[in-house]
Write a protein that binds this DNA or RNA. Structure first.
Lengths: 343, 343
DNA sequence: AAGGTGGATGGGAGCGTTCCCAAATCGCTG
DNA sequence: CAGCGATTTGGGAACGCTCCCATCCACCTT
C-alpha cells in the first residue's frame, strides 16, 4: 500500500509560505483565500500577489480535515435500470451536472451502484463524510437508499420522480405526462381515431406518467378507439406489443410508444405487417434519442431536456448544501415534440 | 461559504478511540488498519473487534494530508468529440472502470473538459494532488493534455489510440483494423465484389485504422472494385456518402461503414434509392451500438468490448499507481462481428 | 546468568488548514 | 490628550492520520 518514494516536502507552496511572502500572518492569508471581508486593502493586495507569484492553491485534504466538509458530491447510478436511461440521456445529464458544478468548488464523484453491497458503500461514503451530498439517477422502484442517505444527514436530489413517496426529497424530472399528452393530441389532430399506446413498465414513474398523459389526451374525445399494450421500454417488447395491437385492431392508425426503442420495435413490426408509416399508421416515440434520428422513417419523438435536468439536479443539491433546511419543490421541466417523419 | 452549524465533535470514531477501546496505542491501531504484519495476533484481534464495535472508518482527508496521496483517480471526458463515443459505449466504459476500481480503495472523479480553460483545471487538479492519476477518453486530435499531465508527474492512461505519438503513455483500444478487416472479408466471402467503405474523420485513429483494415482485407484480391467515401462518423455524412457512392458506382453490392450512425444513414440512402438490403447491397457498421439493434433491417456490426476497455484502462492506471515506472504497452482488445440482417 | 537479538509497541512530530481569541492599531470624540 | 470602540491582525490549537524512533519485553545463546 505504501508508495516508495515519499516526499515530505512536496513542491507545493503552503499558506504559510504565502503569508511570509506577503509579510502577513497565516491567519490573514487564510482570510484572503476564503474571501473574508475583514482584511485591509493593502494586505489583500499583498496576499493576492503572493498567491499569484507562488502559484498557491489550497490543500483540499487539509481544509477538509478541519472543516469536516469534503466539497465533493456524488452521482449514484443504479445501473440495474440503465436500459431506461439511454445514451445521450446519461451523458447529457452528466454534462449538465458538470456545468452547474463548475460554478462552484465542488467536485463530482461517480459510482455505479446496483447491488445492495454497493448501496452500503454509498451510505458509508456519506456517513464518513467523504461526500457532502448525493444525486441519484435511475432509481429502482422502491429503493430505500435515498431515505437512508437523508437519515444519514446528507442532502439528496433525485433525477426522475420516484414511484413511492420519498417525503421531502426533491427531484427533477421531465414533464412526462404533458409530453405524452402533447404527442397523443398531435396524433388526434392529424385525424387519427384509432390511437394505441405501448406503455413502459408499471413500476416506473416515467411509464405510469406517460400512460396517464395518453389517457388524459383522449379523455372525453368521441369516436376514438383506445388501445393499450404493455411494454418494458425495450425494443423487443415494442415489437411484440405492436404485433399484439395489430392483431387486436388491424385498423389502428396511430401508436404512441413510451420510449424510442419501443417505437423502433413498433416500426419494425408495422413494416413486417406491410403497413406504411406514416401513411397507414403514425408513430411517435419518447426521448428523442439518437435512435430517433436513425430509424427509417425518422422517428417523431418527445424530447427531454436532459442537460438542463442535469443542471437542475445539481442546483437542487447545491441549494441544500448552502442551506441545510431549504424546502425544495420538485422541478418539472417541459418536454418538446420533435416532428420528423413517422407522424 | 461557511456552513453554519459547525460541529467540532462529529460523531465519527477516530483511530484514537479505537485504540483506547482496544487497549493499544494509536500506532498499533494504525498498523492494523493498514495491514502491517508487525502486530501480535492478540492486538490484531482486539483492534479488529474495536473497529467493528465502533464502526470505525479511516478519515480520508486526514490520511491524505499526511500521505500526500488522494486515493482518487480522474476520468476526463473531452466532450468535444463525444459524438464518436455513442451511448452504451460511454456508459459501459464507466461501468468497466467502476468495476475495476471497486477492487481497490480508489474513488472515481469525473470531469467533462472540452475547453482549454477546463483543461487547465484538470492540470491543476493533478498538480495540487487532488487526484493521483488520470484516464482520458475521446481525446481530440493532437491534444497536449496527456503529455502535460505526465510532465506534471501523474500516471495517465488513455482510452482510444491517440493520433499523434504520445511516447510512453499507455492506452487501450479496440482492434479497429482487425475489426474492419474481418467485416470486409465477410462481405468478400459472401461473394460481394464491388465493396465500398465510408470512412471516419481523417484525424482520428479509429477512422484511419478502420480504413486501413478495409484496405488490408481487399489487398491483392482480384476482380474487386474498391470505393472510398469520406464521412465524419455522423448519420448525415453516412447518408450523403452513400448517395455519392451510388452515383459513382450504381452497381456496388456492399458497404462497410466505419460507424453505426453512418451505416444507418447509408441504409436510408439505399432505401431511398430503391436498393434492397441485404439482397442488393450488404451493409456492415461499426460499434454494435444500440442503434444496430433498431434499424430496419437490423444492422450487422463490429462490436467493441467497451466494458472490458473500461476495466483495462483502470488496470493500466492502477499498475502505474503501484509502480511509478512500470513500462506498459498498449492494450488492444479484440472486436467481434455481430451478424444480423443487413449483411 | 549475563548479554544479545528482534519483533511488538507507545507516542511525539508533523501534514496544511480553519477557527477563534487576544492583541495591536487606528481614528474619533469629549 | 486621554479614552474608547471598531477594525485588523497574529498565532495557538485542533482536525485525524501516518511515520518514525525509542523503548520494552521475551526468548535465545554462550
Amino acid at each position: 500500500m505504501a508508495g516508495k518514494g515519499r516526499t515530505r516536502t512536496s513542491g507545493r507552496p503552503t499558506l504559510e509560505q504565502v503569508a511570509v511572502e506577503a509579510n502577513v500572518s497565516r491567519g490573514t492569508a487564510s482570510r484572503v483565500v476564503n474571501g473574508s471581508l475583514e482584511v485591509s486593502p493593502y494586505a489583500l493586495k499583498a496576499v493576492r500577489d503572493a498567491i499569484r507569484k507562488l502559484g498557491y492553491v489550497p490543500n483540499h485534504a487539509a481544509r477538509s480535515l478541519v472543516t469536516q466538509r469534503s466539497d465533493t458530491v456524488l452521482l449514484v447510478v443504479s445501473e440495474s435500470e440503465d436500459r431506461v436511461f439511454n445514451e445521450p440521456f446519461f451523458a447529457s445529464i452528466v454534462r449538465g451536472i458538470s456545468q452547474e458544478l463548475s460554478t462552484t468548488a465542488l467536485q463530482l464523484n461517480l459510482v455505479m451502484a446496483s447491488t445492495a453491497r454497493q448501496h452500503d458503500r454509498v451510505e458509508q461514503l456519506v456517513r464518513n463524510g467523504h461526500v457532502d451530498g448525493v444525486m441519484l439517477i435511475s432509481l429502482h422502484g422502491d429503493d430505500p437508499l435515498p431515505q437512508n442517505l437523508v437519515a444519514a444527514g446528507a442532502p439528496v436530489a433525485l433525477i426522475g420522480r420516484p414511484v413511492t413517496d420519498t417525503g421531502d426529497i426533491p427531484y427533477v424530472d421531465a414533464d412526462n405526462e404533458a409530453g405524452a399528452r402533447t404527442a397523443t393530441e398531435y396524433l388526434y389532430r392529424q385525424g387519427r381515431r384509432r390511437i394505441a399506446t405501448i406503455t413502459g413498465p408499471r413500476d416506473m414513474a416515467a411509464g405510469l406518467d406517460r400512460l396517464s398523459g395518453y389517457r388524459a389526451a383522449l379523455r372525453g374525445k368521441r369516436g376514438v378507439t383506445k388501445l393499450v399494450a404493455q411494454g418494458d421500454f425495450g425494443q423487443a417488447s415494442g415489437e411484440a406489443a405492436m404485433r399484439e395491437l395489430l392483431a387486436r385492431d388491424p385498423d389502428l392508425d396511430a401508436v404512441f410508444a413510451a420510449s424510442d426503442p419501443m417505437a423502433a420495435g413498433a416500426l419494425r413490426a408495422l413494416w413486417t405487417a406491410g403497413r406504411r408509416v406514416p401513411e397507414d399508421v403514425s408513430v411517435i416515440g419518447f426521448d428523442d434519442s439518437e435512435l430517433a434520428r436513425n430509424t427509417n422513417p425518422l422517428l417523431t419523438s418527445v424530447s427531454q431536456p436532459a442537460q438542463q435536468m442535469g443542471r437542475k439536479v445539481a442546483e437542487l443539491l447545491i441549494t441544500q448544501l448552502r442551506d441545510q433546511d431549504a424546502q425544495l419543490k420538485p422541478v418539472i421541466l417541459p418536454t418538446e415534440l420533435i416532428c420528423r417523419e413517422s407522424a
